[in-house]
């Protein structure tokens, strides 16, 4: 069992490459992002180094959607099996300080070489 080479998170709205950040922690809490991230139209991806440790990996990201809102979020994935009490996709925080639990529901898709994580912003929720 091994990790994909890249973590890729896909969003439902277009992104702007400002304030972007991504951290991927392995079960030993070590950041395994191994190079510069890339922001393409709808997705954020970052290379990660290979890790054989089985357990829960935690992905934390910050992006800014095309309409100018910074969004931060966190989700987990597992190599082997969960090593931590689960692990629903955590809170997603808008930078302005509001915390919107589960509003940016991940419509997760696992890609061949990565993990896709799609969120949709519900503009009418305030």
């Amino acid at each position: 069992m091994s990790l994909p080479k890249t973590v890729e998170i896909t969003f439902a709205t277009k992104l702007m490459d400002i304030g972007t950040g991504i951290v991927v922690l392995d079960p030993s809490r070590k950041n395994i992002v191994s190079g510069p991230f890339t922001v393409s139209e709808y997705s954020l991806s970052a290379p990660i180094s290979d890790s054989k440790i089985l357990g829960t990996y935690e992905v934390t990201y910050r992006v800014v959607s095309e309409d100018g809102h910074p969004v931060e979020g966190r989700f987990n994935f597992y190599l082997g099996q969960s090593s931590a009490p689960t692990a629903s996709p955590d809170r997603v925080t808008e930078k302005s300080g509001r915390t919107w639990p589960n509003i940016f529901l991940p419509l997760a898709v696992v890609l061949a070489l990565g993990i896709a994580f799609i969120f949709r912003r519900y503009r009418n929720i305030k």
Binding site: V23, T60, T93
Partner: peptide, 13 residues
């Protein structure tokens, strides 16, 4: 970094 562990001053700031 912020509370989530993300860099506060991003790579392309």
């Amino acid at each position: 970094t912020d509370t989530l562990g993300l860099p506060l001053i991003s790579a392309n700031a």
